[in-house]
């Protein structure tokens, strides 16, 4: 357990698990806002939550430590929700 000790590992994994899911929800939300309506759209939206979650969970091992994982993913998640609220605002 090098590269920052056990605490860093838990910090990374918790960042991926806890921030990856809301990040996936926000990106699926953007899809719901921006893509044209059609039958089955809500099902595809549900399917779109997982890939960003998995990507986030894998990405936490590519940064140097747990703090950076929280900062990067926290920033991305905040940005995704900001975009979602902006879209909603302008879509009325």
């Amino acid at each position: 357990m090098k590269a920052g000790g056990a605490a860093s590992w838990w910090a990374r994994i918790s960042a991926g698990l806890l921030l990856g899911f809301p990040l996936g929800l926000a990106l699926a939300g953007l899809f719901v806002q921006l893509a044209p309506d059609g039958p089955g759209k809500f099902q595809l939206a549900m399917w779109l939550v997982t890939p960003p979650w998995v990507a986030a969970l894998a990405s936490v091992f590519l940064v140097r430590d747990g703090v950076r994982a929280w900062l990067w993913l926290g920033g991305s998640t905040a940005a995704a929700y900001a975009a979602l609220f902006l879209c909603r605002h302008f879509a009325g």
Binding site: L25, G29, F42, A45, T50, P51
Partner: peptide, 29 residues
């Protein structure tokens, strides 16, 4: 792997989606 996550957790994901994105309207959809 990706599809299995969805098959296993789709109820939970729908619930969260309903709250965050659909704001309670998912059942009607």
């Amino acid at each position: 792997a990706l599809t299995a996550v969805v098959f296993c957790l789709h109820d939970e994901i729908y619930d969260a989606l309903d709250r965050v994105v659909y704001r309670g309207t998912l059942r009607a959809v």
